[in-house]
Simulated scan of single mutants.
Amino acid sequence: MDARSQSIPMLDLSTARSEDGHFSPAFISKLRDAAHRVGFFQLTGYGSTTEEVSELFDATRHFFDLPLEDRLELDNRRSPHFRGYTRLGHEITQGRPDAREQLDFGPERPALENYPANQPYWLVQGPNLWPDKAMPQLRGVAMAWAERMSVVGAELLSAIAVSLELPEGHFTDAFTGTPAWMAKLVHYVGGVVKEAGSQGVGAHADYGFITLLLQDQIGGLQVLPPGSAGWIPVEPIPGALVVNLGEMLEVATQGYLAATIHRVQAPPPGIDRYTIPFFFSPRLDAVIDPVKLPPALAEQTRGITDDPENPMLASYGANVLKGWLRAHPEVARIHHPQLVQTPRTD
């Protein structure tokens, strides 16, 4: 692998379009290179202010400073939709607990009472759990950030389509109506979850299209680009978004775009790390067909990552439900036992 792949590319979204409104060829070239070669890049110039970022981090820290009993009022074991608060060590990645606690939220929509039996992924739609009594400001701050990230995600997805020599709006239909984005407020704590060891989050790829991560200055995120011999750290840059591509784009491009494996190392004991990831994702019923790549790009496809234990699916709803069931087995057993595979004993 060449030396360029040993660092994470930098892109400036404010340079994405020329004065005539079309995407800049220089930006598209940089984006295509980063998305194919690494699957990760850092993004500046996306329109947020220092004050907005500070407010979001302050709110995140405030939430995790609330008494545990207040956080447990939002316990995700109460939510059949995998929303709410997950305690330290109760999310599972690669079969091990993660050294983090988090608050999961998504679009504010009512639960669906009836849906086809062959579409169980509709169960992930439902109301969020917010600390409206203990911290009434959090809902507004978090949802405002999600709205901003939805705009950034849509612009990047249009640029990605152009980088594949497709029309800007090629992927738009999958997001029309009720896009099922997800977001988290995350607090990493080292040295508390014994079973986690150094695992903040285990190695994994993301389910959807584009992940937009705001991280603090502690660090710990590492990526394993295609063909890389070792893990590469993603160094914190104040206010920048860390962007990575999800499994839907790898499936759609037969591996030309990479849903790159990444992990987080837990911080040292006594050090707190805070992040806010946003997962820009389509409707739950969206099925992503393969795109027709131009010959020059088609020659560089790598195929879809082959993991029999965690196959990538073209149905977004099926892909995300598979991930939730694996990551939150307690919620799955309580609310969806019919979807949990019971190990055979014979």
Score class of each variant (00 low, 15 high):
21 G>I: 03
181 W>T: 01
44 T>D: 01
83 R>H: 14
20 D>R: 06
56 L>K: 09
88 L>Y: 04
158 S>K: 15
3 A>E: 14
129 L>Y: 12
302 R>T: 05
138 L>D: 02
130 W>Q: 09
141 V>N: 06
164 L>A: 07
232 I>E: 04
318 A>Q: 14
247 E>W: 00
31 L>H: 00
211 T>F: 04
46 Y>A: 00
67 P>Q: 04
171 F>E: 10
312 M>N: 09
292 K>L: 12
163 S>R: 04
3 A>G: 03
311 P>K: 08
156 L>E: 02
53 V>T: 15
195 E>Q: 13
77 R>C: 11
181 W>D: 07
112 L>G: 02
314 A>C: 10
264 V>S: 06
74 L>R: 07
115 Y>H: 12
267 P>K: 13
113 E>W: 03
337 P>N: 10
67 P>G: 09
259 A>E: 07
1 M>N: 10
55 E>C: 12
187 H>P: 01
66 L>K: 08
173 D>Q: 15
190 G>T: 09
274 Y>N: 05
184 K>H: 10
249 L>Q: 07
329 P>S: 06
19 E>Q: 15
260 T>P: 06
277 P>M: 13
310 N>G: 07
111 A>K: 05
254 Q>K: 13
51 E>G: 13
205 A>S: 15
176 T>D: 13
128 N>H: 05
276 I>R: 11
344 R>Q: 14
273 R>V: 06
258 A>R: 11
142 A>C: 15
225 P>K: 08
213 L>D: 01
78 R>D: 13
171 F>M: 12
230 G>T: 11
149 M>V: 11
270 G>P: 09
272 D>I: 01
129 L>V: 05
90 H>V: 02
289 D>F: 00
184 K>T: 10
218 I>A: 12
152 V>Q: 03
66 L>Q: 08
204 H>F: 09
19 E>T: 13
169 G>S: 15
30 K>R: 15
318 A>T: 07
156 L>D: 02
195 E>C: 08
252 A>N: 08
183 A>R: 04
64 F>R: 06
206 D>N: 06
169 G>V: 00
255 G>E: 04
27 F>T: 00
158 S>H: 14
9 P>Y: 10
324 W>M: 13
198 S>Q: 13
61 R>Q: 15
264 V>W: 04
236 P>S: 08
219 G>P: 08
172 T>I: 03
239 G>I: 05
229 A>K: 14
63 F>A: 03
173 D>T: 13
266 A>W: 09
116 P>M: 02
296 A>M: 02
119 Q>K: 12
77 R>S: 11
225 P>A: 06
80 P>M: 13
93 T>P: 00
72 L>H: 08
243 V>H: 00
101 E>T: 01
71 R>Y: 01
214 L>R: 05
209 F>H: 09
